[in-house]
Design a protein around this nucleic acid. Structure first.
Lengths: 357, 357
DNA sequence: AGCTTGTGTGCAAACGTTTGTTCAAAACTC
DNA sequence: GAGTTTTGAACAAACGTTTGCACACAAGCT
């Protein structure tokens, strides 16, 4: 009996029972136990049942590390957060994305790591540890910076990677994204058909592809409508509420103010809206507003904010799907998947009575 | 030279260089290389430098799994999400908490796993895999359910665990929390000194300790002030906006309506506020509002919502600190750490002009 | 010069699995 | 009933590390 040994060790730490202990107790070899665990076809019914019973009795749990070491697979993915991650955490968008990612990865039997880096050096170290240290089987990249060295690196090593967003340099990398150009076009166009001619754009940081794409869509809509785009009507900032506030202050101080604003993110939109109200403007009568992401609170703003729903959950879910397919070497039909968006019109952009769609 | 071998393998998959390859190339034993990596004192300057140079040249990255297998430590923690995790992801609270946890754990050199379970069975499997499968060194529990079997289990096995919240059954487990009784007392008291006598409480699910604690604080403040607590003034729900909306609808339909509401969470508060406005009530004139968590958007509501700031980031940061101390077997001064809260008074609960503190 | 202490390195066992190979016995062939 | 196939299980090597022990050599004591 091994109970003595176990009990003794149990006093100090957890009694750890291995495949060998089970083998000895069952009177079989370790390999047989291993094959029982993995449901190998050439194990007899009786042996299997006996071993399983003993595993149950002794409380056996396979050691994941040992298994990974030989199988060279960890059943684990990592989400690499952009740097800095501050903004992300402060946005509903992230939670919803995470929800989508986890929903699928959990279902598929993968564990998820969350990797945050503070400095570029730190980022390299983290990647080295996770990827080259064989700790994860695949990576979801959340950073859609314009020239992200990480993307190049992972791509070069052919490491399973899915980018949420778009890469300038590596168009062939697996990615899931919205058609942000079209989305911004739609948002802008919506304001245009409401009769606005002076429309501003509150953007995010200029080194993010999402900022560039949405800017492009905004410009395109304006150009097509023959409306002027004033440089001072475009303000960059972060994905934070006070960026919105600041942008709003600036634009409202201009001699020629926009009467409509396209805002890169709902949280920023909240900042804009709050600022406008504070100064005494009325939305949508004085200034109309459309923003992106359609976070849950957008419809609870006063007035409710019109927003482009980008299918955030879907974005995450699909990213996980693509990554796991890639890892399991299933055929992937498209390198780049576009999640459809749709404009949710609310009071912040419509004067009339017929606003609820 | 090993280059041939490496290049050959490199065509198919990544060239993987181990400690043995380095050893051979440097003309030393694997143990020496290992000791160089871990900065063992008894390694000569020259050997160390030579080995390090070769590691650099050949692109060596230690295999984390192999290391974990022998060292019995993974430098990884897990956050166990409550089940279901839906609500959590939809609340700003979570992002901020995560931010705090990651800030510390990253600094301390630990990786973080995010574990979500869908069913109780699934939850057990996940715990088995992570804890007994030796995949993580410690766990942060986010579920503060009243009788959580998970807490018992982890506690019984003396597995390093920190609970964010409070456990009824296991008062001695490591935990970090707010004084939610006092917090709710403060929120309620604030409404009382504003002159309110009919005060309602919009609660969360009744199987969460946080709901119970805040309820208790609310009751205590009412009792002390000699004010009646009507059963119909207490409504339970989830941490979701529409729970707030529903609770509001119900209370406003009562013959004797409360004039002040204490709301368990800001997101729920948003729902309440939106509903009230929709029906035509004015906040704070008709109904005053105080809620909890002080998420970033609270101050951007119309009117801005008074909220109890519970130090969410601090909560996460401290949890990580305690857990890592526990793992590293440092002395822990207190099993239970209370993060101070403070009431942020905003327009939703103050009639007068002197509202900005 | 002999003895002790200190320094730098290698050997080999261990960590807990998986899996290719081997082999005996049982179950089929005709 | 001899030959062939199938079945069930054991052996042992491998995965990439760490680490206690041994040992050679250098340096420091009388």
């Amino acid at each position: 009996m091994h109970l003595a040994k176990q009990l003794h060790k149990g006093v100090i730490s957890m009694a750890v029972v291995t495949i060998k202990d089970i083998a000895k107790a069952a009177g079989v070899s370790p390999s047989t136990v291993s094959r029982v665990v993995s449901n190998h076809p050439r194990i007899s019914k009786e042996t299997s049942q006996k071993v399983k019973r003993i595993m149950e009795e002794m409380g056996y749990h396979p050691n994941v590390m040992a298994k990974s070491l030989v199988s060279k697979t960890t059943q684990t993915l990592a989400i690499m957060l952009p740097r800095p991650a501050e903004e992300l955490f402060k946005d509903f968008f992230f939670g919803e994305l995470l929800r989508g990612i986890l929903a699928h990865s959990t279902r598929a039997g993968y564990d998820m790591m969350l990797a945050a880096a503070t400095s570029p050096q730190d980022e390299d170290d983290t990647i080295s540890r996770l990827v080259f240290g064989r700790r994860v089987d695949g990576i979801i990249l959340l950073s859609s910076r314009v020239n992200d060295p990480l993307i190049d690196l992972l791509n070069k090593h052919k490491f399973p990677t899915v980018l949420i967003g778009r890469s300038e340099g590596q168009p062939n990398i697996l990615s899931v994204d919205n058609d942000n150009v079209k989305a911004a076009y739609d948002a802008t166009h919506h304001l245009i058909i409401q009769g606005h001619e002076r429309i501003g754009f509150v953007s995010g940081l200029p080194n993010l592809t999402v900022s560039l794409d949405r800017m492009e869509g905004y410009r395109k809509a304006m150009n097509e409508a023959g409306l002027p785009v004033r440089p001072e009507w475009i303000v960059e900032g972060e994905f934070l509420q006070h960026s919105g506030y600041r942008a709003m202050s600036f634009m409202m101080s201009l001699p020629e103010r926009p009467s409509g604003l396209v805002v890169i993110d709902d949280v920023v939109g909240f900042g804009v809206l709050h600022g406008l109200t504070e100064i005494g403007y009325t939305v949508p009568e004085d200034i109309s507003l459309v923003s992106f992401n359609n976070i849950a609170l957008s419809e609870l703003a006063t007035p409710p904010i019109s927003s482009i729903d980008i299918g955030t959950y879907q974005l995450g879910y699909t990213a996980s799907q693509m990554l796991i397919r890639c890892i399991q070497e299933e055929t992937i039909h498209q390198n780049r998947v576009i999640i459809p968006h749709r404009l949710i019109v609310r009071d912040s952009s419509v004067h009339s009575i017929s606003k609820r769609n």
